[in-house]
Design a protein around this nucleic acid. Structure first.
Length: 868
RNA sequence: GCCUCCUUGGCGGAAUUGGUAGACGCACCGGACUUAAAAUCCGGUUCCUUCGGGAGUGCCGGUUCGACUCCGGCAGGAGGCACCA
């Protein structure tokens, strides 16, 4: 029997057209139906996609198609994270307008995505750079401003003195601007902030409720928020001569138990005390200038030696009469955390120890391991950091002596609180979110600065604040600021000439609420609470681990902020989160070091890799994330042309667990293509065979096939529910293998009469359970099997639970933990019966060698272990 | 430096969460079909072995009738955070 090959090139566009025409993937806002919202992190339209970009969309698509079949009203939309710096760079380099560049990319990428056969509701498509989107973002910003969740303050920025622009931390390389190469300066600038810290406690606490998030992501967010419990208290200050002065020094500490080990105090160079005394302390001005030049990059901070300048002030120790602690301005104290001031306890903090050694300050140990000798306990080069209650004891600490660290903290806190000189406080590492960007291609911040009225939001009826088309990208700096007219407006309150805010928003703002906008993408308010409350939260969100902290935290914040403004009633936007791995590929370089595309090389039978055109030797480099720069990319067009998109989808889902990186290989895509052909052949064979009537009295062979089909269906369903696509794929293969063998038997002639009908049933189940993964193939097969309805709009088949249980089972039998035999028994066999039968087994008798068993452990339906 | 995770055949990986280690796929080897090749189908493939067996999930130890799975230590790798007081 010969079967025509499955022709993906013809079949796939056909079904895509049919799905499209019948609007099967359009999501209706129908609060009566149970909903399921599947979302993949929307792409930045950078140009073209490669096949590596497809993985998370395919995963989401499998879930969407499965949930649709399970009867859910599925929302599965797509959009574009379309503002951002690359568009502006393109404008500068190629003289194209950022808008033109962006929309052209969107068009390209949309048609590429459509090749993948995704079950998307394209009617809800949105782009964040479209005024229909960012108008509402501006409205949200104004709402936040009115709620006190958006505010302006001075803050440090990385300033590129050549390009006259603010740089993001990632744009600072070795302390220099990435474009200009000029040393970056730390500068104070008025910037807009969103008050994420208003929700620090909530954002931390409700991480616990996000049970369908990876632990790893929750932990990363927890560390990022960085809650710590400590004590804030004030020192009285005296001058050189011991006179009390009219200033106090407030510090924050988590180690108040070590107060008796304090030997100095330190403030940030930016601390008001240091600023105030800049003029009258020798060397302080120069020290502060050095500090400002340091930049904000991590390496700069890490490499820097701990240094300080004494301010000529002394803090009075709160519990030791007459003890004066010198106060320094020190470069390792951050103004942005706690009070910007600390007391230094060199015995129990490494930075303090380094500092004390450098400046010859006393090092007094006040905590030591429990049971140690207090006299002999010394601190050398390493501070003693242990603070677990059971292992430690306080020494050299007056009324704290003998206490554990926890007890001492308690005692100190109570003393301070009794006299109102200090109180227990909670601090967070999390800072407010600076959203100001001095760029053109972003959402304009809808604010107006008026000399009389101050900062005034743009009234709702004047939104959106549109970007001007005629910006100039040739001069450095912010094009909006340079624009001759754009920023000049009348104050909406007093009508006098005023200035528009020329900052645009961080693009992370755009992506902080798009998932909510998808519920009502054309509404004339940012959200429609009723509909948003129906669709949200997103039931399954899928994206890269690189967004584990910022994007996901900002979106969580935004949802709370939108809730506070009455736009929806929801605190957590993403019920389930999945972080998928990347697609990686070998890299190739020729002798001159030029990167080669995979399609430019061929691999010989001996494994050597050569240039496909010239035959020159090619060196194979490491397997890396697909990227344009290393050219290790495969285009979706070439794969779809050669193998069809179902083969590509199947391959992306096979083998590697979805959260891990997966290597794209020629052999892999060919293997997937073979499976597609194999299913098609099976379907063709079954479709051509007269199945005959379905027999009720089913033969053992047919029963085995039916059981295999239902077991596979049960497994595949569970695997898709849990996003274990690699296992779902394996279970389909397993069933395919069973069917292949049975087909062979059926061809033999002496097969039971009910086998063909059962085989047809099994093949149909196989097709249906594969449909979410290889949807075009499944539709074509389903039609070939004589069905009229579309699988894309058909319910998921039911598992027959009776097919999942076996009447007799095979128990492995161990002797002393080693498998020696097997026992076939009824599923519900009595333990005693099993024990007796086991001892009669030859493998067991041999292994025992005549010895008496001491014990027999029977784990029902699992295993038997005979202990001799 | 701190925190987290990972380590199973030639390769990707599976193992019902303490119960037959290696499902399924790739690659490779053999066979069938073919004049031949491709395609397809069938069989084999953890290692050692004196063919009886023995060893085996990074390494060392522990708990258990039984450990890839739990506990302690070590090694290697990946990721996150990083003067956060």
């Amino acid at each position: 029997m010969s079967v025509e090959r499955y022709n993906a090139r013809a079949v796939e566009p056909k079904w895509q057209r049919i799905w499209d025409e019948r609007n099967v993937f359009r999501a209706e806002d129908d609060p009566q139906r149970p909903k399921y919202y599947v979302l993949e992190m929307f792409p930045y339209p950078s140009g073209k996609i490669h096949i590596g970009h497809g993985r998370n969309y395919v995963m989401g698509d499998v879930v969407a198609r499965y949930k649709r079949a399970k009867g859910f009203n599925v929302l599965h939309p797509m959009g574009w994270d379309a503002f951002g710096l690359p568009a502006e760079n393109a404008a500068m380099e190629r003289k194209v307008h950022p808008r033109a560049w962006t929309y052209e990319n969107i068009d390209t990428m949309r048609s590429q995505l459509k090749l993948l056969g995704l079950s998307l509701d394209w009617d809800r498509e949105l782009a964040t750079c479209h005024p229909g989107y960012y108008a509402h973002q501006q409205q949200l910003f104004v709402d936040f401003f009115k709620q006190g969740l958006a505010y302006r303050k001075e803050s440090d920025v990385n300033w590129d003195p050549v390009d006259q622009t603010v740089l993001a931390n990632e744009q600072v390389i070795d302390g220099c601007g990435w474009r200009s190469g000029a040393p970056v300066e730390k500068r104070k600038l008025s910037q807009w902030f969103l008050k994420i810290t208003a929700f620090s406690e909530e954002l931390l606490a409700s991480l616990e409720t996000l049970e369908r998030w990876p632990d790893k992501v929750r932990l990363m967010q927890k560390n990022w928020i960085g809650r710590s419990e400590g004590l804030t208290f004030s020192f009285d200050l005296e001058d050189q001569d011991g006179n009390l002065i009219d200033e106090t020094l407030t510090v924050y500490t988590t180690r108040h138990d070590t107060i008796f080990g304090a030997s100095f105090c330190a403030v940030s160079p930016d601390h008001p005390l240091a600023v105030r005394h800049e003029a009258d302390v020798a060397g302080l001005a120069a020290f502060r200038k050095d500090f400002a030049a340091l930049g904000t990059s991590e390496e700069a901070i890490e490499r820097t030696e701990k240094r300080g300048v004494p301010l000529g002030l002394y803090a009075r120790h709160p519990f030791i009469d007459g003890l004066r602690l010198p106060v320094y301005a020190a470069n390792f104290v951050l103004m942005g955390y706690g009070e910007g001031a600390i007391f230094g306890c060199p015995g129990h903090d490494q930075r303090d120890l380094d500092f004390a050694r450098k400046y010859g300050l006393p090092v007094i140990p006040v905590v030591m391991p429990a049971g140690g000798d207090a006299e002999a306990f010394q601190i050398a080069d390493e501070a003693y950091l242990q603070k677990e209650a059971d292992d430690t004891v306080l020494i050299n600490s007056d009324f704290l002596n003998g206490m554990s660290v926890a007890e001492a903290k308690q005692a100190i806190a109570e003393r301070f609180e009794a006299t109102d000189k200090g109180k227990r406080t909670v601090n967070f590492r999390l800072r407010d979110w600076g959203v100001s960007r001095q760029r053109y291609w972003g959402c304009p911040i809808p604010m107006i600065h008026c000399e009389t009225c101050g900062t005034v939001p743009v009234p709702a009826d004047q939104l959106p604040v549109l970007l001007p088309d005629d910006a100039n990208f040739d001069t450095p700096g912010n094009p909006l600021d340079h624009h001759p007219t754009w920023k000049h407006v009348d104050c909406p309150q007093c009508g006098k000439p005023a200035l528009r805010e020329t900052d645009t928003m961080d693009t992370f703002v755009d992506s902080s609420w798009y998932f909510a906008r998808f519920c009502t993408p054309r509404a004339d308010t940012p959200l429609d609470a009723k509909i948003a409350n129906y669709w949200l939260p997103v039931d399954q969100y899928i994206g890269g681990i690189e967004h584990a902290i910022l994007h996901l935290l900002y979106a969580r914040f935004f949802t709370r902020a939108m809730q506070a403004c009455g736009h929806l009633d929801l605190a957590e936007p993403f019920d389930g989160l999945f972080t998928q791995g990347m697609i990686v590929h070998e890299t190739y370089q020729d002798d001159d070091g030029n990167w080669l595309f995979p399609h430019e090389v061929t691999r010989g039978d001996d494994g050597t890799v050569r240039h496909a055109g010239t035959g020159a030797a090619v060196s194979v480099g490491p397997i890396e994330k697909m990227s344009k720069s290393k050219r290790n990319v495969v285009s979706p067009e070439e794969i779809v042309d050669t193998y069809g998109v179902d083969a590509a989808r199947w391959f992306m889902l096979s083998d590697t667990p979805p959260e891990r990186d997966s290597e794209w290989t020629q052999a892999g895509i060919e293997g997937a293509w073979r499976l597609v052909q194999r299913i098609w052949r099976m379907v063709a064979e079954v479709a051509q065979t007269d199945a005959g009537a379905r027999a009720d009295a089913i033969s053992p062979q047919a029963l085995a096939v039916r059981k295999a089909a239902h077991k596979a269906l049960a497994s595949v369903s569970q695997d898709i529910e849990h996003l274990r696509f690699n296992r779902a794929v394996a279970h389909v293969y397993e069933l395919a293998n069973t069917i292949t063998s049975a087909l062979q038997a059926a061809r033999g002639g002496d097969a039971p009469a009910d086998l063909p009908a059962t085989l047809r049933e099994a093949v149909e189940l196989m097709v249906r359970m594969s449909a979410p993964m290889v949807p075009h193939l499944a539709e074509e097969c389903w039609q070939a099997l004589g069905h009229d309805e579309m699988l894309a709009a058909s319910p998921w088949p039911d598992v027959d639970p009776a097919m999942l249980v076996e009447d007799t089972i095979v128990l492995p039998v161990q002797v002393n933990g080693k498998k020696r035999d097997e026992l076939t028994v009824a599923r519900d066999a009595e333990t005693q019966e099993i024990e007796r039968a086991v001892l009669a087994l030859e493998g067991v008798r041999k292994a025992l060698g005549g010895a008496e068993p001491r014990r027999i452990i029977v784990v029902p339906q699992r295993i038997v272990n005979v202990v001799a």
